[in-house]
Amino acid sequence: MILVFGKTGQVATEIARQAQDAQCVGRDRADLADPEACRDLILDMEPAGIINAAAYTAVDRAEDDEELATRINGDAPAAMAQAAARLGIPLVHISTDYVFDGSGTQPFAPGHATAPLGAYGRSKLLGEQGVSAAGGTTAILRTSWVFSAHGTNFLKTMRRLGGERAELNVVADQIGGPTPARDIAAACLTMLHGLRADPSKAGIYHFAGAPDSSWADFAREIMAQAGLDCTVHDIPTSAYPTPARRPLNSRLDCTTLDRFGLTRPDWRAGVAHVLAELGAQT
């Protein structure tokens, strides 16, 4: 049995679809604001492996609620990793491009120096450090710009707004890799099985969709595939201020994924799949 922290989130939903032996737990059974409860659940259940797909993801709200974000994103993953190490089982932990400062134009490699710009990034970095310090067999998977047919995400917002408006202004100077949650889920499962077979593969990895894109170009692809007659205008980040600073460069170097036989997914194919799923729901 694989224990998955997260039940209704984008990646956890996709893991549940793909793995019959996955047991996904939500806040009712494991509140990440209570790290000790997460640790105790692992020790009680004794799973074969763990995937942490749960997190505090309200980037802007974290600026005023860093203590809670740190408990959920920092302390809880550390407690999970300590329990996993005690049981001798592998853990895959999902992290984020927000641990970097977004400088330059080159893709960030897993070993690049971290320098988060805000509270959310700091909380996620603390989680990474806690997972690594636990001393078990762990893989930290940094990803970016997640989208799916579930929850709240950029694709669903653009699809809705594109059907309501003739024009939209979208940030064009932030560059990254949109990543389908379905592919992240598959990568997590592949990595977990890989760690069980070969613990030497433990480490930090990057996984993001290809090709790299701006938010504006991502939006234009969504409009085109959805058949929406909505013009997307490029604007700079400075024209769309938010409480939390966003990294301008979210490009991730994903080359080390070949250790698990993984490659970057084409996010445009992911858009087509998600739009078909959303269309089937209406």
Rank of each mutant, 00 (worst) to 15 (best):
M1L: 09
I2S: 03
I2N: 13
L3S: 12
V4K: 04
G6P: 02
G9Y: 01
A12H: 04
A12T: 02
D21I: 01
A22C: 07
C24V: 01
V25E: 04
R27L: 11
R29K: 14
R29D: 10
R29V: 02
A30V: 03
D31T: 01
E36W: 00
C38W: 09
R39Y: 14
L43T: 07
D44E: 15
M45G: 02
A54C: 12
T57K: 11
A58N: 10
A58V: 00
V59K: 08
A62P: 03
E63F: 06
E63C: 06
E63T: 05
D65M: 04
E67F: 01
L68Y: 03
L68P: 04
R71M: 10
R71A: 11
G74W: 04
D75K: 06
P77M: 06
A78G: 12
M80W: 11
Q82T: 14
A85V: 09
A85K: 12
P90A: 06
H93L: 04
Y98A: 13
V99R: 02
A115K: 05
P116I: 02
G118N: 15
A119K: 02
L126Q: 09
S132W: 07
A133H: 11
A133K: 12
A134H: 11
G135I: 09
I140K: 03
L141S: 00
W145A: 13
F147T: 06
H150I: 00
F154E: 08
T157F: 12
M158Y: 12
L161S: 13
L161F: 14
G162P: 10
E164K: 14
A166C: 03
N169W: 10
V171A: 10
D173I: 03
Q174N: 12
I175C: 12
T179I: 05
P180A: 15
I184M: 11
A186S: 14
L189M: 11
T190E: 14
M191I: 14
R196I: 05
P199D: 09
I204V: 14
H206P: 03
G209S: 11
A210D: 07
S213A: 15
S213F: 02
W215V: 04
E221Y: 03
E221I: 03
I222H: 10
G227Y: 04
L228N: 11
T231V: 10
T237P: 02
A239V: 00
P241D: 15
A244F: 06
A244C: 07
A244W: 08
T255K: 05
T256C: 07
T256H: 08
D258S: 13
R259Y: 02
L262N: 05
L262A: 05
T263G: 12
R264G: 00
P265Y: 01
D266M: 06
H273L: 13
L275M: 10
G279C: 02
A280D: 06
A280V: 00
